[in-house]
Amino acid sequence: MNWKIPAALLVVALAYPLVFRGNFAINFGVLVLFFALIGQAWNIAGGFGGQLSFGHAVFFGTGAYCSTILQLKLGWSPWSGLAASAGAGALVGALIAALSFRFGLRGSYFALITLAFAEAFRILTNALEFTGGGVGLLLPLKRSALNFQFAERIGFYYTILALTAISIGIAIWLQRSRFGARLAAIRENEDAARALGIDTFREKVKVMALSGALCALGGTFYAQYYLYIDPAVVFGVDKSVEMLLVSMIGGTGTVYGPLIGSLLLTLVGEYTRAITDAQGLSLIIYGSLLILIIGFLPNGLVDLFKLRWRRKARA
C-alpha cells in the first residue's frame, strides 16, 4: 500500500488554512471537505457496496436532527450528539437496508425506496411537534469549542477535516479488507457471491449502516456550522443529489473520487456564481460543465489522474 498519497493530501489539507487565512477561503475549504464527507458516505454504499441510493438525505437529516434535538431538549453537548447521531444514522441505515434487502429489492427499486424513506422522514419532521415542524430548529448562539461552535472558522475546518479523513480512511480500509472484498464480489455479481458462501444480506446491511453513520456525522456538522436546520434543507432531494453528484463526478467506487468531485464541483459552483450576474447563467454553465466532464471522462475525474500515473509508469 502506498501511503504517500494520503500523507501528502493530509499535509496539504492541514496547511491550507494556514496559507489561505481569509474566512472565505477557509469556508471554501470547509465546504469542499463537507461535501467530500457526505459524498464518501454515499460512495461507500453506492460505489463500494454497489447499492445505489437516491435518498441519502435520510441519513444526513437524521444526524442533523438527532444531535440538535438532544441538545435543545435534553441539554446534551453537541459532541456527544455527534456520536449519538452516528449511531442513529447507522441504525436507520441498517433498518432501511434490512427491510429492503429482506424483501429482495435491487437496483433502481432500491434507489427509489431510499428516496421514499427520505421523503417520509421529511414529511414527518415537518408535521411533528418535537422536531419543530416546518419552522425548523434554531440552535442558540454560544461560541465555545466545548459547544461545537468555534469562534473562528478554522476550528470548524479542522473538525470537518478530521471527519473527512476518517471517511477516506474507511474507504482505504474497504479497498484492502476482506469485508471490502466481499462487497466487491456482491457488486460484480450478487448471485455468484452468494454461491461462494457470502452472506450477501448481512454484508449489504453492514455497508448501509456504515454509510448511514458517516452521512449522519455530516448532518450534525452542518447543524453546528449553520445553527439552523429545517426539514426541506436537510431531508430534501437536493442534498441526496449533491452527494451522489460529487461521488459520481469524481469517480464512483474509488477512494479519492468524492474528494476530487467535491473540490471540482465546489470550485465550479463558486466560480460560476462569481463570474455571472444574469439570472440562471451560472447554473447554465455549471450544468454544461457537468455534461462535458461526463462526456470526456466517463469514469469520473479520477481518470485524469490515472492517465497521468499510467503515463509516468510507462516512461
Binding site: L245, L283, I284, G287, S288, L290, I291, I294, G295
Partner: peptide, 13 residues
C-alpha cells in the same frame, strides 16, 4: 448524470 446536467441547464435557460 447527463440527464441531471441537462435538467439543470434547461431549467436555468
Amino acid at each position: 448524470l447527463i440527464t441531471l446536467g441537462l435538467s439543470i441547464v434547461l431549467e436555468n435557460v
